[in-house]
Amino acid sequence: MHTAKFEEQALADHAFLIVLGYMLDNNNAEELVRAISQAQERNYKYIVVDCEHLEFLSSAGVGAILGTIETSRENQGDIILCNLSPTIAHVLHVLDLHDFLTITGNRQEALAICGIKQG
């Protein structure tokens, strides 16, 4: 998946999945804000952001997450990041965001936080 475009998918009536492309930077950070905001407006409490393909995260990408996460948390939900590569995790660690953000190793763990049971 060598594209910067996202894939979006409802996982349940309260959980929404966004699969990032290989890059989240100035060019598409606003697009992520739009996708998250729309999901929040449609009352998805949990938004799972799958970073499996993400190779580069700029400050604008960080801002897209930080700038929208409070809306989910105020609604007793969260934005959950999963499948981070070591380099992306390192950037979040360097910025001291690893404890603030909800990060899981894989999508299954993220779904478990959302209360979605896997078959």
Partner: peptide, 20 residues
Amino acid sequence: HVDANIAAKTRKRRGFGLAM
């Protein structure tokens, strides 16, 4: 310094580049 709590509460989406 990046204060994640303040950034989140204020819906701050820009200004992280220099800290980074």
